[in-house]
Amino acid sequence: MRSPPSATTRKSQDQSRVCLLCAPRPWETTCFGTPEPTAGLSRVNSHLACVLGARCAIFIGTCGGLLDDAAAGDHIVPDAVYADESSTRAYEGPAGDRLHRADPSVSRRLTMALTGVGCTVRRGLTVTHQAQLAESWADIQAWHKAGWAGAEMEAASVLAPAAAFAVPAGAILVIADNLVAGQSVFDPEIREGRTRRRGALADAYKVALPVILTHPDDATAPFASHPSPQEAAP
């Protein structure tokens, strides 16, 4: 069952989008980056990497915070991401499940690594909402009431293809602004916090690379591409 597409969230001018996708051997690790947020390109990169035999996928990006005490520069490692967007519909199961789960072992390792370098890390559910600036105050309040930790534009489009190919995947999101506090990327204090956000993204890259190079533990196994979603389906 396919659900109609919906639309997402404010993003900072200096945001960075990267999907780290690890092949079986360290020298086959691929890092795909896009200068602008684009769920479609994130999905294609994730899908292609899985076809080529990726063993792990990690998405790194920024998000709008949905927790009362969320601060710009804090990290979120989502346990699962709700797809309020259209590109992931091709990967939904028969029941049309739009909640795409991160691999628990990948998320645990990312959390431990971030905590180990002194980062503030939050766990929970987040939402991928694809139309930048199109979220309403009612959307934000509903997400906050549901207990979701953040809203962004691409994470589900990385997790969904990875799950379809049975590739463990996770995400690190850096909070750019606090949506429930009424903050906007156009606010002076948010612009002035650019250095901290960039530092938080640098920390995310720093901890993600060792995880993706060593996950799973048999990362030196011979190269083997994964079956297509259709072949992997029961």
Rank of each mutant, 00 (worst) to 15 (best):
R89N: 12
L52N: 09
P94I: 13
A232W: 10
A57E: 05
T220S: 10
G150E: 01
A219F: 15
A219C: 15
L110F: 05
M1C: 11
V117M: 10
V207I: 13
R108Q: 14
A221Y: 07
D69C: 07
V207R: 02
E92L: 15
N45L: 05
V18G: 00
T34R: 01
I175C: 08
E231C: 08
R98P: 02
K11T: 15
A166L: 08
E135H: 08
A142P: 03
A181L: 11
G150P: 05
S42N: 12
L110T: 03
A204F: 06
R55N: 14
P210C: 09
V185I: 12
G116H: 04
G65T: 02
V158K: 02
R98Y: 06
A151G: 08
L114I: 10
W143C: 04
K11I: 15
G61L: 04
T8F: 06
A155F: 07
Y91H: 08
L114R: 03
G33Q: 12
M153D: 01
T111V: 12
G118A: 10
T195I: 13
C63D: 07
A71T: 09
L41W: 08
V211Y: 02
L99F: 07
P5H: 09
G147S: 05
L125F: 10
G53M: 07
Y91I: 10
D139K: 05
E85N: 09
A200G: 06
A204N: 08
G53T: 11
T88P: 02
P37E: 07
R123V: 07
R98Q: 10
C119W: 01
G33M: 12
T30I: 14
A181G: 13
V51Q: 13
R191V: 12
V167W: 01
S42E: 07
I60H: 00
Q230I: 13
A70L: 09
R17Q: 15
A224I: 10
